[in-house]
Amino acid sequence: MKIGVCAKITPDADARIKVAADGQSIVLDGVKFGISDYDEYAIEEAIRTKEKHGGEIVSFTVGDASADKQLRSGALALGVDRSVLVTENPGDPLGIAKLLAAAIQKEGGFDVVFTGKSTIDQQNFQIGTMVAELLGWAHVTQVTALEFEGNQFKATRNMDAGIRQVVAGTLPAVISCEDGLNTVRYAKLPDIMKAKKKPLDSVGAGAIGGDAGAARSSVGNLAPPPARPAGRMIEGDAATAAKELVRLLRDEAKVL
């Protein structure tokens, strides 16, 4: 199978995020970057698919030229064969999706492309769906189990209330990956060393025949959540304190 995977470089999940003075971006100094968590599931699923069905894995990223470092350690060292890094900075998710779709089309011949269900920085949940639409392929979101047979796939996804939905379809397809689909492996040390020799193409939009187009939406401003007010200590013995707590929950917080 020819397997594609879309991976975004984002701040680490445990990075401390501060809004920059312009109110529209975050402070990047001292922030550690890595492949977005859900995209790690996508990479893992791509590798497992190759292990089972054979073939080749190509990853696609739209991002800064410095992303090559994370792509080597987070994608190529794990088992991705080649990486394409489109060094553009589109203004909205549609622009990113257009460039990814163009790169996937330019490369051609894919049976399946994996994406994370969303990225942990923007959490727009849009890329997989837009890429599928632009390519005209089948698409399933938030997949937690997946099988291939011939040119058919069967994907399980979680719906609300814990109901599981099984979706069948014909390849090619874009599969967006949810937590629980797999467990991400560690890069093996010899593979970390081999990754530096694997092909990583840094290209502009022109080289893949892509065009992000004008952004149709833009970020107005970013604001951290309001600081939590300080807690209040209730004095007195257990019985008195419990009564007072119930009174406060009912009369002040109005949650009872």
Binding site: R72, A77, Y186, L189, I192, K196
Partner: peptide
């Protein structure tokens, strides 16, 4: 090198 950093991250995650 980048490989040293990748090694450190891998061992730290595993640890």
């Amino acid at each position: 090198t980048d490989e040293h950093q990748a090694l450190r991250e891998m061992v730290a995650d595993f640890t």
